[in-house]
Design a protein around this nucleic acid. Structure first.
Lengths: 187, 187
DNA sequence: GTCTATAGTGCGATAGAC
DNA sequence: GTCTATCGCACTATAGAC
């Protein structure tokens, strides 16, 4: 892994743990094992480097989700697999976390990947719910778009509650609750 | 409102918008219209002042929720009222936001009110769900604790998605989706 | 109880040698 | 392409006058 790559990966981890305001170029350089000059050679500054890191985290989230959504099994099985997939609950969502970062949301360039990722995720999940409905596996009374938004919200909120409790099990409990609610509408 | 009070309220607002790392004593003083000496007279420092602000925000969240939970109407009506209550979706949750703040979660004293608030909220909501079940208004197959955690997660995640989209309507959509899922289990 | 002055630290960024 | 030196600034906190 070359220096540029190490800088991006270090920024991703620090952004995940400390957020944008709490991540300093100095900390990035130390973690990447690079000097100041090196960082400012590859990137114009903190926002430029953060953008590269955010885009990569967004792509990773999207790729992993797409793998579950387009995987094998019936639509509802794929949704269950997606919701139950192991996540690092106590670390939170590397992309969702950024919505609480004012400097990120205030900068249209930094904000864009975050906005696009969740817009895609909600739409994509709604599509799988629509598939399930077309197969006759899901109650037609359920609105796919609203249900998809609620399910994604359970994951994002599950991170919040797990971190508040200091217990990853709370995340699992939120998912269990959501699946319990969904089960009543499955045929 | 005296100086001490203005300092606490200013800190609450700044903590809500900028988070702990992004909130400086200087900004607090300016918003409160107080000098440095004044702040350090009333509080030992930033963490001490933040604690007072966090405790107050936690109390407010709890009081507002309790008002809905112990209000008039059947249990499921009260839950619907709680979920649908107007919130400032784009500003996010003043307490939930703190879970993303490393300096807050790393300090047991600052973390305590956050942890307690969500533990109480989940337990209290589970209690109302149990009431609904006892009244024969809710499917007995639904686990009250898991369902409560999922519903609270929808709210917390709804903030995240609304902020990501830059649209408060997304928060409402998450709530609609959750109520749609819950409706299938109501008698 | 509130003010101003000041200290010490770390931030984000630039300059220029190698 | 990477390094060290340095800049100007804001941060959190303390000291001491009023």
């Amino acid at each position: 892994m070359d220096t540029r790559e190490r800088l991006i990966e270090s920024t991703r981890e620090l952004l995940w743990e400390y957020g944008y305001v709490g991540t300093s170029p100095k900390a990035i350089q130390q973690r990447a094992g690079a000097g100041q000059g090196s960082m400012y050679h590859h990137f114009r500054g903190k926002p430029d480097l953060a953008l590269a890191a955010i885009i990569r985290s967004a792509e990773e989230l999207r790729d992993r989700a797409e793998a579950e959504f387009s995987g094998p099994g019936a639509p509802l099985q794929r949704i269950t697999a997606y919701l139950r997939r192991e996540r690092e609950a106590l670390r939170g969502c590397p992309v969702g976390r950024l919505t609480q970062d004012r400097d990120v949301m205030a900068d249209p360039t930094l904000r864009r990947p975050v906005e696009d990722t969740f817009a895609w995720l909600r739409t994509r999940l709604a599509g799988v719910l629509t598939e399930a409905r077309a197969d006759g596996d899901l109650d037609t009374a359920l609105d796919p778009a609203a249900t998809a938004t609620a399910l994604v919200a359970v994951l994002q909120g599950g991170y919040v509650l797990a971190r508040a409790a200091g217990d990853a099990e709370v995340y699992a409990q939120a998912v269990d609750g959501a699946l319990g609610l969904l089960a009543g509408h499955a045929h």
